[in-house]
């Protein structure tokens, strides 16, 4: 199954990056959302894939005896999902605020911090 997952991850990454290369904030946001999933799947796949057996130790046993899915990437991804959601929400609000203040959703028109006609810094002491 790793083969199929690898291809899937490639598709996710390509789509996310294509969206992020756009100038428009909404498409960039959508790209970021997909990028989060792409990274999670990447982690999931690199921990190898097993079907249907969650990494839970059966009652009455002290250690895992059966072959189960790999718990380590799952632990990493679980927190990553929540964090990427917070990040996504932050970007969403940021773009929303940028739109309200600047009246555009085109990243190229947002030149407040880096104005187009930026004069050279003064030389001297």
């Amino acid at each position: 199954m790793e083969v199929l997952f690898s291809l899937l991850v490639g598709v996710f990454f390509a789509a996310a990056i294509y969206l992020m290369l756009s100038k428009f904030l909404v498409r960039i946001l959508l790209g970021v959302a997909i990028l989060g999933n792409a990274v999670n799947l990447l982690l999931f796949t690199s921990g190898r894939i097993l079907r249907e057996v969650p990494p839970v130790i059966p009652a009455g046993l002290d250690r895992q005896v059966a072959v189960t899915a790999n718990p380590l990437p799952q632990a990493l991804i679980l927190t990553a999902i929540v964090i990427s959601f917070s990040f996504f929400a932050f970007l969403l609000v940021l773009s929303y605020r940028a739109f309200q203040d600047l009246g555009t959703d085109n990243a190229n028109d947002m030149r407040v911090a880096e104005p187009v006609a930026d004069s050279a810094p003064p030389t001297g002491y």
Partner: peptide, 12 residues
């Protein structure tokens, strides 16, 4: 984008 996606696929 496709180059990146391909890169990730091959790498994985």
């Amino acid at each position: 984008a496709i180059a990146c996606g391909l890169g990730f696929s091959l790498y994985l």
